[in-house]
Design a binder for these strands. Structure first.
Lengths: 218, 218
DNA sequence: CTGATGCAGTTTGCTTGCAATCCGGCGGCG
DNA sequence: CGCCGCCGGATTGCAAGCAAACTGCATCAG
């Protein structure tokens, strides 16, 4: 049995709880078979990571409107760019080989968006680690946790998976060559494309979603 | 009476608890006149902000060694630079006037390092807000909280206060003129000087500190 | 004399129960 | 007819107590 924190996080990540939902301590406690205290602690931790936000006295799952999305991508681009630059300078040969291997392996699952999304998270995390800056790793963790609030992965978009892997490969090559400017440029382009894809997906689905309860209140 | 969280934070910030100290729930509970539950919650929140870290089963106040210091300043420089750039683009005239006023007022306390340190934090926070990016504000909050673990402020160094205010003024001017490149450059120089000052102070005091219990174990 | 083992004290993690607060509906009054 | 205030349920915040885990010490066996 895992702890309340991980249980709640994965419930959010798998979409059991959705942005805007209200989380009631006693409900969660019963659902997970623990008492309210560990649930409370988990909720407060999630609140400080701003996956939850207060609504009056109770907690709801944070929602991302268009502006927040843009702000989040801005911060993410900057931090990831820094990570790429540092990784190009600091990554050890072993780390570089691991990154290369990850890209190669991911070719096999290029048509499974769910698996690819997980692999994608692992890949980026590995890049973060290669920066050898633990604060950067921590901050990027936070950013990615907020990104988990976005329902769909952009990797489900037609053709995006293959392109994303090419971009990953380019990044690994840049890191391997120790060219920090190229690594940064490569990563910025990757993030930028991801954002663009997300905006397109968002636009494509405009109006066709049934009540999600979060952004169609009129 | 404030809540346990703020009480603990200010105890750390004022140096009542020092890096490396072990925090025992029951002690804190008694000291603050509350039960262990709110203390626990506060401690866990501080842990997720990495002001505390686990040492075995219990929590100690996080320490910053030289490497961590460098890593922290690296991340900070990047995020603050982004904030400066965005502030130059997005700050409203009112916000700019407030920033100018803050610098002007701070001239009066240039010789009171404690007050100046507080004013400095307020000033930077105001710059962050002027970026109009709430994720950036949040991330920079985190960075500054980790910086609170450093005992002394660099503003106590001889002459640093006055120079720092000049740098603040330069930043405000750049933001006011809407020149994002200049604002970024100006802020990077400011951070860089602060870091340099800190390293000098650190070097100056090498060997003269009695057992702090954290970095002189032999 | 050294190392292992068990015991006691300390501290954390969790449960349970209680008090305070907030939200919604309902009735009274203007 | 509408607005205000009150009451009941629901939910959070806090407190106290209990069980389990770890630490350090002492004792005993080899």
């Amino acid at each position: 049995m895992k702890d309340a924190y991980s249980l709640i996080v994965s419930a959010i990540e798998t979409g059991v709880f959705r942005p805007g939902d209200r989380l009631v301590e006693s409900e969660l406690a019963e659902r997970f078979g623990v008492s309210r205290t560990p649930v409370r602690e988990a909720l407060q931790r999630l609140e400080t990571q701003s996956m939850l936000k207060r609504d009056g006295r109770s907690l709801i799952i944070a929602t991302l409107d268009h502006n927040q999305l843009a702000e989040l991508y801005t911060v993410r681009a900057e931090l990831e760019a820094l990570a790429a630059r540092l990784a190009a300078r600091n990554a050890s040969p072993e780390e570089i080989r691991v990154l290369g291997a990850m890209v190669a392996e991911d070719q096999a699952i290029v048509n499974d968006p769910q698996a690819l999304a997980r692999a994608n998270r692992r890949f980026h995390h590995q890049v973060h680690l290669a920066s050898h800056n633990r604060y950067l790793v921590q901050q990027l963790d936070l950013v990615h946790r907020s990104m988990a609030l976005m329902a769909r992965t952009t990797l489900a978009a037609k053709g995006r998976g293959a392109v994303a892997l090419e971009e990953h490969q380019a990044l690994v090559d840049a890191i391997a060559s120790g060219d920090s400017a190229l690594a940064e440029q490569s990563l910025r382009r990757h993030i930028s494309n991801a954002f663009e894809t997300r905006l397109k997906e968002e636009a494509r689905q405009f109006g066709e979603q049934p009540a999600t309860g979060i952004d169609n209140e009129l």
